[in-house]
Design a binder for these strands. Structure first.
Lengths: 153, 153
DNA sequence: CTCCCTGAGTTCATCTATCGAACTACATAG
DNA sequence: CTATGTAGTTCGATAGATGAACTCAGGGAG
């Protein structure tokens, strides 16, 4: 009676759910973006159970969001760094940030904001359509089978 | 020894994680956007254990993403509809969709695309900064305490 | 009236995942 | 020899997920 896996379902949301549905995983990624690299850094920052953290690292390395990099030979020690795939995952965290900011606080919103290190300005993530630049509206969209380019009529 | 809760942490990502970290929850929301409303519709579409589905509905109603609407008096029956807060959650699913499409398939990408019902065109969700319209880059951003407007110097 | 069906759950036994705390392994510092 | 730092693993207890069966209400067929 294993927890149902979604990682082979034919839907990108389902497969991503399989990852972010692991408790702590988005927070581990958040800390990676905050510049943390070592086991103890993550553990102290989040106070996540060490056994869980070890399992999350294993999976995230396995899935290719993090890579294990040796930083010392004796004793052998490794740190965890974002891969391109991991860096791209920022968009998911940003969308979560925005929705959480907008809907999970009363009154004045959350006590924290996102700031661009270069400009010093606040950043507000927004999800748009790449082609039109227009904000998305969920109920106007539907999931559709991709027109197979491989079948000439 | 309850699973650690994140819903009171002072970070929007943490609070959102507390929701999407419940197994099945993003899929339940996906089905809601696909137009499903009734218990049995969700259950048949996802093959989610009924006990889990009931608990997810309870929580999503509780958190205000869905509302329970009576559609029949005898016997009393209810359906579940998206609230504004629930509709806004689409952005998170869209970001998950995009990342999953880009990174969780080999070769030709997933067998499904997102289509706009009005225009019939494919939609590709993208996360940008609301002010500049520019794509985000995670490691350039940092989380910062909000400058409190309430303390005049 | 009795049997069967639908819809929306609840109950149950089993198994898995997470929890906190303690423990291990390896190396260096004093 | 003991203490400290880093990266884990092990362990017993408990919360959460699973599939199947069961409940409860009303409707329709015979």
């Amino acid at each position: 009676m294993r927890r149902t896996r979604f990682d082979q379902w034919p839907c990108p949301i389902a497969r991503t759910t399989d990852l972010v549905g692991d408790w702590w995983t988005p927070l581990v990624m958040r800390e990676a973006f905050a510049g943390r690299r070592r086991f103890e850094d993550f553990q102290r920052a989040l106070k996540v159970p060490r056994a869980v953290l070890a399992r999350r690292f294993d999976r995230l390395v396995d899935e290719g969001l993090l890579k294990k990099v040796s930083y010392e030979d004796r004793p052998p020690r490794y740190e965890y760094r974002l891969t391109d795939k991991g860096k791209a995952f920022w968009d998911v965290l940003a969308a979560m940030w925005r929705w959480g900011s907008d809907w999970l606080w009363g009154e004045n919103g959350p006590p924290v904001i996102l700031v661009d290190n270069e400009t010093g300005l606040e950043v507000r993530p927004l999800v748009v359509d790449e082609n039109t630049g227009i904000r998305l509206t969920g109920r106007r969209l539907r999931m559709s089978r991709k027109p197979s380019a491989a079948s000439p009529s």
